[in-house]
Amino acid sequence: MNKIVLIGYMGVGKTVLGKKISENLKLAYYDLDDFIEKKVNLSVEDIFKSKGEIYFRRIERDCFEELMLKDESFVLSVGGGTPCYYENYKLLQDENVISVYLKASITMLVERLKTEKKTRPLVAQLTDEQLLEFVGKHLFERNFYYNKAKYTVEVDGKSISKISEEIISLLG
């Protein structure tokens, strides 16, 4: 039984790829943010606004652990910060977990996030210039955790189909 967990920075395509891979492998698919929203009956954006990031990270940890304890194979897309808090990265080290770091350049991430800022609580208030610096700094801080993934797949310039084929081929 394998749990395929996609990690990487926000905007890298974890949700779209997770759905595609689960469809191709005929496995259940979970999006951690969706799971959290159903659990607390609030959007991630509203959780950040009303209760703050620390509260969100605690709920995120509980929900992540709950999913990882499920006795089934599935594909899971987690938030960009998930591996970086409450030692969540340790849950990715289990022998039944295949973690894949979807790695993108700062330039690609900033271009994507510019159009998605309204739906991203961590960057919603940033100007495009601030966004570049924010993403660069964040990626630097998070690389330690992202690089603990079993596999790294570069995504720049590749289609969703190509990336999903690449990930599926890694699974053996």
Rank of each mutant, 00 (worst) to 15 (best):
L91Q: 02
C63G: 05
I54F: 08
V155F: 10
K26M: 09
K26T: 12
D128R: 09
Q130C: 04
L109D: 01
K117E: 12
S161T: 13
I47R: 00
S164I: 12
A28R: 11
K148S: 09
L25C: 09
G80D: 03
K117R: 12
L32T: 11
E45F: 08
S22Y: 07
L17E: 03
I59W: 03
Q130P: 00
E45D: 13
T15S: 15
I47T: 12
F35R: 11
I160P: 01
L6Q: 09
V75M: 06
K49H: 08
D34S: 15
V75E: 10
F74Y: 15
R57L: 04
A104P: 12
L69I: 01
L113A: 04
S164N: 05
S164D: 02
E133Y: 14
N24V: 07
Y9L: 08
V78Y: 04
G52A: 11
I36F: 07
Y89M: 05
I36G: 04
N41P: 04
Y29E: 05
I54D: 11
T119M: 03
Q130W: 00
A149W: 04
I4D: 01
G11W: 00
L139C: 07
K51A: 12
L76N: 06
E129V: 12
L122K: 02
T115M: 10
I168V: 08
E111T: 04
A149E: 03
S73C: 11
M108R: 14
Y85Q: 02
Q130M: 13
I21P: 01
V44S: 03
I4Q: 14
Y30C: 05
I106L: 14
K137T: 14
E95N: 14
D71A: 13
F35W: 02
V75F: 04
S159R: 02
T115G: 00
E53W: 02
N143K: 14
L102P: 05
S159E: 07
C84F: 05
K114W: 00
T82E: 07
K148C: 10
S159T: 15
I36E: 03
L25I: 07
F134Y: 15
E23S: 14
K150I: 07
L102Q: 06
